[in-house]
Design a protein around this nucleic acid. Sequence first.
DNA 1: CGAATGACCAAGC
DNA 2: GGCTTGGCCATTC
Length: 114
Amino acid sequence: MTNDSFKLAVYALVAQIPAGRVMTYGQLAALSSHPRAARVVGQIAHFGPEELPWHRVVNKSGQLAATYSFGGRSGQRQHLEAEGVAVDENDRVDVNGLIWWPLAATETAEVECE
DNA sequence: CGAATGACCAAGC
DNA sequence: GGCTTGGCCATTC
């Protein structure tokens, strides 16, 4: 079923996000063949496996979204900072450089290589 | 199983 | 920059 495949795809993508990088719900949804199902990604993130680094997942504005998990945005922010992600006072990350794509691993390998 | 919910996004005002 | 509307689909009650 495609719906299950969707979840699995999201799990796989989130699991691939390297420390110090973040991904957006829209990306996860789009890469999972559901560019408009970003909301579902949010639901999966909330009820999904806690094994995955959901704290590395932010919204399209680069702003944190966690409400209860990780102790709320405050907790998520600390997790990100602990991994080297710069979070501003508004609980936002640098959408210009911290947003990571699977393709970026090969295309911008030079840049993301510290 | 039906209805409500939601860690979102894009477009319009 | 903000708020409102429509849409998407899994999870929960």
